[in-house]
């Protein structure tokens, strides 16, 4: 039954059919909590779409629209401050050093659609970012970049955070990391996401290690 639901929901997202997607959410049944629905239907659908993009069978425009639709739908049944949102580490996301926001927007959409919550720092430079992370006592920092020089600056972020004694896990994503699968290690990140839907499993794995 869940597989059929995921199929139908995936189809609605790929067709950019907001009404069909909304209907599936509304018909989920009283015994299915919003978080459970997000975990069992929304996330698998978004993961399928993300995998399709990685394999070259789907386009970024489809991944983007799917994330936006899901974020809207989940926000309606599970508002951002709802106590039902998952117990989670303190997380923040930013774009480092450039103005290309798409990756960050998609990861935010997807995490919120999956029941997570996180602070959005927007565009940051290294020193401001380090200061903000320390001030907010962040556990997991997600950094999105488009350009290689921005990716290389992550190394400095890592060094400065370590120098301040901040125990922050860094998750990185963006084009340079997809073109060099060793680059995330070079810059000192703890993990990388090949696409937005990777973020959920990466964070969940990290949370297991934090317990």
């Amino acid at each position: 039954m869940t597989d059929k639901l995921v199929d139908a929901f995936t189809r609605a997202l790929l067709d950019v059919d907001r009404l069909a997607a909304k209907q599936i959410v509304q018909n989920r049944g009283h015994d299915t909590s919003p978080v459970k629905f997000a975990e069992d239907v929304v996330l698998p659908a978004l993961e399928r779409i993300g995998a399709g993009w990685q394999a070259g069978t789907l386009a970024l425009s489809q991944v983007y629209m799917a994330g936006r639709i899901c974020e809207d739908l989940i926000d309606q049944i599970l508002p951002p401050e709802d106590p039902d949102r998952k117990n989670q580490p303190k997380m923040a996301i930013c774009i480092l050093s450039d103005h290309h926001k798409l990756g960050k927007i998609m990861v935010c959409s997807l995490l919120r659609a999956s029941g997570f919550d996180l602070a959005d720092y927007g565009v940051m430079e290294v020193d401001d970012l380090v200061e903000q992370v320390q001030k907010d006592n962040i556990d997991i920092l997600l950094i999105s970049v488009l350009m290689l020089p921005s990716a290389l600056k992550i190394k400095t972020v890592k060094q400065k955070l370590a120098h301040l004694g901040c125990d922050v896990k860094l998750i990185v994503g963006g084009a340079p990391f997809r073109f060099d699968d060793r680059l995330w290690k070079t810059v000192g990140a703890d993990a990388m996401c090949r696409d937005a839907s990777d973020a959920v499993s990466v964070i969940e794995n990290m949370m297991k290690g934090m317990v």
Partner: peptide, 15 residues
């Protein structure tokens, strides 16, 4: 337009 207005808003415009 990706540089003129940003990726996300361009997708919204296009679609």
């Amino acid at each position: 337009p990706v540089m003129q207005m940003g990726f996300d808003r361009y997708f919204d415009l296009m679609l």
